[in-house]
């Protein structure tokens, strides 16, 4: 009888260094804006925009655009789904680590 081995695979959206760091940072906060994420993670404008768009498409973060004193302001929040997926991601990573010894 052939035994099929199934292996956990981490969430591809999260298993990317910049996106993982964005989610981890947002998990400690209620909300952070574009400038804070860009400065803290030392990213460029475009790089941060691309990654946050992907996270938003996956439903892991919410993006709110507004104007503060006529200056565009973009705020990011971790969604409930994002929080759950991040926790699951680390569980998967832990299982993979245990599996690999």
């Amino acid at each position: 009888m052939k035994r099929v081995m199934t292996m956990d695979m981490p969430d591809d959206v999260i298993h990317q260094p910049t996106r993982l760091r964005i989610l981890m940072l947002l998990s400690g906060l209620e909300e952070a804006d574009f400038t804070f994420l860009m400065n803290t993670l030392q990213l460029t404008n475009g790089n941060l925009s691309v990654h946050t768009s992907k996270l938003e498409q996956a439903g892991y973060i919410s993006i709110e655009k507004s104007f503060l004193n006529k200056i565009p302001h973009t705020a990011y929040r971790l969604t409930d789904l994002g929080r759950v997926r991040l926790a699951e991601y680390w569980e998967t990573i832990d299982r993979i680590r245990m599996g690999s010894g």
Partner: peptide, 22 residues
């Protein structure tokens, strides 16, 4: 401390930053 922690290498780094370039 936050900036130092955010720049530490992680397992996900092995995958590389292949799809985030604008």
């Amino acid at each position: 401390r936050l900036r130092m922690a955010a720049l530490l290498p992680m397992e996900a780094d092995e995958k590389g930053d292949d799809d985030g370039h604008a």
